[in-house]
Write a protein that binds this DNA or RNA. Structure first.
Length: 169
DNA sequence: GCCAACGTTGGC
DNA sequence: GCCAACGTTGGC
């Protein structure tokens, strides 16, 4: 099983949208590298759902790949924003996968936290100029982000537990 | 809104 | 195949 990170602008499609729908086509990707990574995805692969172009950006939760790559029909929709006349039904150019909602982290793992975490050094996400909307994540990095996201000690309601440690004793 | 860092396009 | 112009991403 491989692990990945996929970016979405929450104003367009957030993890909350995915939660409500249950599953969704990850369509509209128009970058060759990202497309190639999606082609490598297998059903069952796990995905960090990343919110981009928002304040703050960061990893919001987890999803699972539930359908392997198949032609992206939005490339054929002349009226849509993702239309690409080079993609035909006979020779599709763009592909997509289906992702299914797994969980929203109790703690939203911000990009700043990812950058500051020693275990996460070298993640593609934080490398300069890296803009890929679909990218592989090493298993150790993946597990670390999940651990941060699930650690309720870091949630805003519980932050004082850590902040106040030692102040009274 | 700015702009750095890429990626893509198309003339030559 | 080179590269200038243009488009996009996405943090800031």
């Amino acid at each position: 099983m491989q692990t990945w990170l996929m970016k979405s602008e929450p104003e367009v499609f957030s993890i909350e949208h995915l939660r409500k729908k249950g599953h969704a086509p990850w369509d509209g990707v128009r970058n060759y590298q990202a497309r190639n990574f999606m082609r490598d995805m297998k059903a069952g692969d796990l995905v960090l759902f990343y919110h981009s172009s928002c304040q703050p950006p960061g990893v919001a939760g987890l999803a699972r790949v539930t359908k392997e790559s198949h032609p992206d029909p939005t490339a054929w929709d002349k009226k849509g924003d993702s239309f690409d006349p080079r993609s035909t039904r006979e020779k599709p150019l763009w592909f997509m996968v289906e992702v299914t909602y797994l969980e929203t982290f109790p703690h939203f793992v911000t990009l700043d936290e990812v950058k500051a975490d020693g275990y996460l050094a070298g993640m593609r996400l934080t490398q300069k100029g890296s803009r890929l909307s679909v990218q592989p994540v090493g298993r150790k990095h993946f597990d670390r982000v999940v651990a941060l996201g699930r650690d309720v000690r870091f949630t805003s309601e519980n932050r004082h537990v850590l902040d106040n440690r030692g102040k009274t004793g």
